[in-house]
Amino acid sequence: TCLEKAEKHRHVEKDVLIPVIMRDRAKELCSDKVQAFTKCCKETGFLMVVKCRKENTALKDCLVGYYSDPSFYEECKTEYLKQREEYRATGIKKKKQKITSNI
């Protein structure tokens, strides 16, 4: 039914589409930790699991901090709704771009 389709769409928005925006924004906001972890991995090769623990922990802590922040979720939800509204008005899907934050 129409109601079931709407409920499924809301589920996809809440559990998939908004988290994608959250992930992208969090990666950007944690970019210094992403770069440090990437650099460590490139320098240590197969030993990265052992030698890059500090960088990996710092990166995880940064990302999880954003993922678990209700206000960050609301910001990303607002961004998603804005993109959805623009798509519905124009029929043109917005290209992925870097998103800046005022956090």
Score class of each variant (00 low, 15 high):
1 T>P: 10
3 L>K: 03
10 R>V: 15
10 R>I: 15
10 R>L: 10
12 V>S: 12
13 E>C: 08
14 K>V: 06
15 D>I: 02
15 D>G: 12
18 I>S: 00
18 I>T: 06
20 V>I: 10
20 V>R: 14
22 M>V: 01
22 M>P: 00
23 R>S: 06
24 D>P: 02
24 D>K: 07
25 R>S: 06
29 L>G: 06
31 S>I: 04
33 K>I: 02
34 V>G: 01
35 Q>D: 11
35 Q>V: 08
37 F>D: 00
38 T>N: 03
40 C>K: 02
42 K>L: 14
44 T>R: 07
45 G>R: 11
45 G>F: 14
46 F>L: 15
47 L>H: 15
50 V>H: 13
51 K>R: 11
51 K>M: 07
53 R>N: 11
54 K>P: 06
54 K>L: 03
56 N>S: 12
56 N>C: 14
57 T>F: 06
59 L>M: 05
61 D>I: 04
62 C>V: 12
63 L>Y: 00
66 Y>E: 09
68 S>Q: 05
70 P>M: 06
70 P>C: 04
71 S>Q: 13
71 S>K: 08
71 S>Y: 04
72 F>W: 03
73 Y>H: 11
74 E>M: 00
74 E>L: 05
75 E>M: 12
77 K>D: 04
79 E>G: 11
80 Y>S: 01
80 Y>Q: 01
81 L>V: 10
81 L>Q: 14
82 K>D: 11
82 K>P: 07
82 K>Q: 13
84 R>E: 06
88 R>I: 04
95 K>W: 06
101 S>G: 12
101 S>V: 12
